[in-house]
Amino acid sequence: MSQILWLEDTNFQFPNVSTALDEPDGLLAASERITPELVIEAYKRGIFPWYSADQPVLWWSPNPRCVLYPEKFHISRSFRRSLNSKAFKIKTNTAFREVMLACAAPRTETGKTEEAGTWITQAMLDVYCLLHEAGVAHSIECWFNDKLVGGMYGLVLGDIFFGESMFSKMKDASKFAMFHLCTEIKPFLVDAQVHSRHLETLGAEVIDRQDFVDIIKIHTDYHLNL
């Protein structure tokens, strides 16, 4: 691995995202600790933390960046049938910690729980819960018969929703949460971080990293009600 910046050596000043590695894509810096202040500063620069419990805190800014413009949210035929069934109730910010814990539960690509590791460490859980208490981190929850069955969480800076993770315990539950975000809350942009086929089916696309950073600079001055 090529040399990356250790943030403790720079008084926690993030380097320009243009210096991020090409392989692994977007790895920019590392640090010994993670704090609410560091997370906010990172997101303002198009950077996010992603690491395992046995690693230092790793900070990333991949190129290209996966994003979803709410007006481009794709409703498939099968999901439209789910919407018409109105089986779920959507709530916001009533079970933030529970949403994070559900997202942290190890899963395979099919969603089934397994014993593999998770990137949502205890330190990240603590920091993001503090950000939630400060009104910066938010959860969108999908409930069925008074049980939390799906949802997502992320940060809101300006009118951009920086998505972190989502989960489903019932078919389409996380899609309902994303649909609510895109059609009811209506941020200017949803940051999806890294491309996946699943996100693509929802209407996500990739844009150049610098274009993403330029959008952040403009839209962090706006306000989103959540």
Rank of each mutant, 00 (worst) to 15 (best):
M1Q: 12
S2P: 15
W6Q: 06
D9I: 02
F12T: 03
P15F: 08
P15T: 12
P15G: 14
N16E: 11
T19C: 09
A20H: 13
A20P: 09
L28N: 12
E32T: 08
R33G: 07
R33H: 11
T35G: 05
T35W: 07
E37P: 00
L38D: 01
I40V: 11
E41Y: 03
E41W: 04
E41I: 06
Y43F: 12
Y43T: 11
R45D: 01
I47R: 11
S52L: 14
S52C: 09
A53N: 11
D54K: 09
Q55I: 01
Q55A: 13
S61E: 11
P62N: 08
R65E: 03
C66D: 03
P70H: 01
H74S: 13
I75T: 14
I75Y: 10
S76I: 08
S78M: 03
S78L: 05
N84A: 11
T92H: 05
T94F: 06
T94H: 05
E98W: 10
E98A: 12
L101V: 13
A102W: 02
A104T: 03
A105R: 14
P106W: 14
T108W: 07
G111K: 10
E114C: 15
G117I: 13
T118D: 04
W119M: 06
A123I: 00
A123H: 04
A123C: 04
L131Y: 04
E133G: 04
E133D: 13
E133C: 08
A134W: 11
A137Y: 07
A137H: 09
I140E: 01
V149Q: 00
M152K: 09
Y153P: 04
G154P: 07
L155R: 01
V156A: 14
G158K: 03
I160T: 04
F161V: 03
E164H: 05
E164C: 06
M166S: 09
F167G: 00
S168E: 07
K169G: 07
M170I: 08
A173W: 00
K175L: 00
F176V: 00
A177C: 02
F179N: 08
L181S: 09
T183Y: 12
K186P: 08
D191E: 01
V194F: 15
L199F: 02
G203A: 13
E205M: 04
V206R: 02
I216T: 09
K217S: 11
T220P: 02
